[in-house]
């Protein structure tokens, strides 16, 4: 089911959470809303879910205007950052909740509910935990229960708010791969919020970058990473060196796009190596340049760093760079 939000605006007191946001999510895609905290991405997710009412604008799901529909009437599934599992219910009861609260003829029989819940629990590999309480599970397991619970009502859209934000690094990576796989199987239109650019680049079909309540850029991960439309996006998607700056323009370079050579070369500027860190397979070099030019950070494969030592004079040139007008940052 496609999602269309049109010219959404939302204020919290004097704080503008969203201003004039328009976005189209095609059916069956996995879309990441990416941005720093306070940039409006979670608010937009909650507006789509019906958990916040926008001050202006409209929300359409599959072409149907749902701007004033309650969260339970939209056919969405929502996964909360801190899971929001019902502590007093078992895992089974949590997943069954959305089916049990259906009224009248819409409520499935107990046997149907049982079968469906167990099927979902085996999908998230937690069928063994049906009788446990959320407090007896790890963070990653709780998040999978939350996902099964959201899927139980057969949502046409799945919305996930920082789904892996509260988990440690290893579990994060595992759940990420698993979510991508699950999406490939179910093909339900999904939108997730994250502030982790790597997460977005790794699993999303499309990325929407947020900044200060507005959409800064949207596109495929390749588009967004290789052609950042603004200095903000450039900086947000990875480490950035200021190669050169004046009143109008700023040229930015990624640390791994810097080429170092012991000999002068055309286009290369002189710099001195201040410090060398080895971080696993990568070496990080801190370089200072003459005059007012900002210092640089360069990343090289660790085996290439033997040619250089602290204090040495080198010549640096960018192999790729982006120039932005200063007002756009």
């Amino acid at each position: 089911m496609s999602i269309d939000v049109t010219q959404i605006g939302k204020q919290f007191g004097t704080f503008t959470a969203l201003s004039d946001v328009t976005l189209h999510v095609p059916d069956g895609q996995l879309v990441a809303l990416l941005g720093p905290s306070g940039s409006g991405k979670t608010t937009l997710l909650r507006v789509i879910a019906g958990l916040e009412t926008p001050d202006t604008g409209r929300v359409h799901l599959a072409g149907q205007d749902v701007t004033h529909a309650g969260p339970g009437e939209r056919g969405i599934g929502f996964v909360f950052q801190h899971y929001a599992l019902f502590k007093h219910m078992t895992v089974f009861e949590n997943v069954a909740f959305g089916l049990k609260v259906k009224r009248g003829a819409a409520r499935p029989t107990a046997a149907t509910i049982r079968e469906k819940v167990m099927r979902l629990l085996s999908l998230v590999q937690l069928d063994w935990a049906a009788a446990r309480y959320p407090s007896q599970l790890s963070g990653g397991q709780r998040q999978r229960v939350a996902l099964a619970r959201a899927l139980a009502v057969e949502p046409r859209v799945l919305l996930l708010d920082e789904p892996f934000g509260a988990l440690d690094a290893a579990v994060r990576q595992e759940l990420r791969d698993w979510l991508r796989q699950l999406h490939n199987e179910l093909h339900v239109t999904s939108v997730f919020v994250t502030h982790d650019q790597e997460e977005a680049l790794e699993i999303a079909d499309r990325i929407v970058v947020f900044n200060a309540g507005r959409i800064e850029q949207e596109g495929t991960p390749g588009d967004v990473y290789h052609h950042p439309a603004s200095a903000f996006t450039y900086r947000f998607l990875g480490r950035a060196n200021v190669w050169q700056t004046d009143a109008r323009e700023q040229t930015l370079v990624r640390p791994h796009d810097l080429h170092l050579s012991p000999e002068p070369a055309p286009g290369a500027v002189p710099a001195q190596i201040v410090r060398v860190h080895q971080v696993g397979p990568t070496a990080r070099l801190e370089l200072s340049r003459a005059g007012d030019l900002p210092s640089l950070e360069a990343h090289l494969p660790a085996r290439d760093v033997q040619a250089f030592q602290v204090g040495q004079q080198v010549y640096v040139s960018p192999t790729a760079q982006q120039t932005y007008s200063v007002t756009s940052s």
Partner: peptide, 25 residues
């Protein structure tokens, strides 16, 4: 409000949310 919001997105009515989620909490 997370628990109540979760119940609402799962289709529970206001009264069901109160009786089944808030009150046990």
């Amino acid at each position: 409000r997370d628990d109540e919001e979760a119940a609402l997105t799962l289709g529970a009515s206001g009264w069901q949310t109160f009786m089944r989620v808030t009150l046990p909490n």
